[in-house]
Every structure is written in C-alpha cells, then in structure tokens.
Amino acid sequence: MKLQHTMTAVTVLAATLALIATGPRAEPAQDDQLVINGEEEVPTQAPAPAHLDGALGDTIYSGWLFRDPDTRAMQKDDFDNPMFLFVDAGIETWNTPDGTEGKSCADCHNAIEDSMKGVRAALPKVTEKGELWSLENFVNDCRTNRMGAEAWGWNSQEMKNMTAAIGLQSRGMPVAVAIDGEAAPFWEKGKEMYYTRYGQLEMSCANCHEDNYGNYIRSDHLSQGQINGFPLYRLKDQGAVSTHQRFVGCVRDTRGVPFEAGSQEFRELELYVASRGLGLPVETPAVRH
C-alpha cells in the first residue's frame, strides 16, 4: 500500500515534469492576433509553400508568434513601436533633395505610399542585367546613378530608415518573391547555404529554424527564422537590424565566419529565406527582443 502510494506520487511528479518540459513551451502563441492600431489585422501564419515539401509542416509562422506578450504588444501599436522613429526619418529623407542632381526620391517616385506599395514583398529579385538585387541595392542605385549622391552603407542608419519606410508600404501584403526562371539559380544557391553546417559548431540554419522551431536554445524560443518583418527593432540592441545583419549574427553564433552584409551569398540566402515565407504578410517594421 505504502509502496503503491509512493509509486503514484512518482508517476504524477514525472508527468508534471514532462508537462513543464514540453507543454506550453513547444508552440508558437496560439491565442494572440496581430491587429495594428486596433484596426488593421495582419495574419501571422499562412499555408506552407509547396517548394518546402512539408519541411515546416503545413503552416508557416511569423517570428512575432514566438516572442513574449510584451514584445508582441509593442508591434501592435505604431506609437509604441520604436521603429516608427526610423520610419519617420526615412520619409523625411524621401522628400529631401540630395547629391549633385539636387533631387529627392519624391521628385522621381512621388508619394512613397503609392509608388513603393508592394515593392518590399517582391524583393530580392533579378534585374534586367541579370543580377540579384535586394532593396538596399535599388536604393543605392538611385542615389549614385540618379541623384549623384553617395551610396549608403548596407547597415547604415540612413539605409535602415529608408528600407523601413519603403517596407512599411507593403505591410499586410503577402511575400511574393519569384523563385523560378532567372531567379532559380540564385535560389538554388541560397537553399544550399541554408542547409550548410557552418562554423566550429557545425550547425545550419535548418538545424535551428527548421528542425527546432518552437523549442528552446537556453532562454531563446526558436522561430522559423522568417524575414517578413525586417528591418526590425531589436530591444536587445536598442536599434534597427537589417536582414543581413541578422544572418551575420546567426552564422557568428555557430563559431563561424559570416559572409559580408550585402554580399552575393547573403542576397542569395535572403531570396531563399524570403521564399520560405511565401504567402506570409509583410510585417515591416517588426519588434523583437
């Protein structure tokens, strides 16, 4: 009798511990919706694109669902979202002449709300010259070739202000990068990188963001590593973070040597990672911790 009692207690204890270990931790948040400014709902999940062949199950999830409630709340209100400081600065720059030609972005493109709608959702893409360009490349092309102004650094504050302002114009629109035709060879290279085990820890993007999303690495709740919210505000860095900056950080964390922000390799990786989020609405500018 006594023994049985103890056995039951042990069983209950084991069950409780198992629940703590796997219960509420293993999932993206299921009970929250990203409604911005109390009016605009941005869906944070979508059916997985066919090219993934079930690698992420049947649903893709925004990184927003893996963050804690406070961080999620900051992204629900543009007044609480620290990125809007940078968006405002970007819009001011949009309207300000610069360079030897004395032109502003607005002189050629008029209102950012009209001309830049949908642009972010379709990038990176292949140009007429057959090169794979990210949003940053297009911005610098205008600056150097049409305005006679200096190129901005890939991770400079000016560049992040502008890509955030342009990205916002696609908020709510599904990611729609082309991966066939001329884009296909770039996409293939990006895919190969995604599954390459870099660094002394010999870990690939897939080891963390495909095999283990929903699980914890120490206190970090692993997401699917989607890029639909970039550039985003990272509370830990108290600043804006570009897509390539995040890639650099993740490769460094494998005790590896990352490629440069803006490199051919990271643009190819960006195209492939964007395609893992095909159909997921753009959230730029997101908030993470």
Binding site: Y198, Q200, E202, V248, V251, G256, V257, P258
Partner: peptide, 16 residues
C-alpha cells in the same frame, strides 16, 4: 574537435 569545419571562426569573434 578542431576540424575540418566550413568557414570556422575564432570562437565567437566572426574572424577567420
């Protein structure tokens, strides 16, 4: 283990 690795860096410095 000291290798072979793909693009190993010196600890977390991101430096080759």
């Amino acid at each position: 283990k000291v290798g072979p690795f793909i693009r190993p860096g010196v600890a977390y410095t991101a430096k080759p």
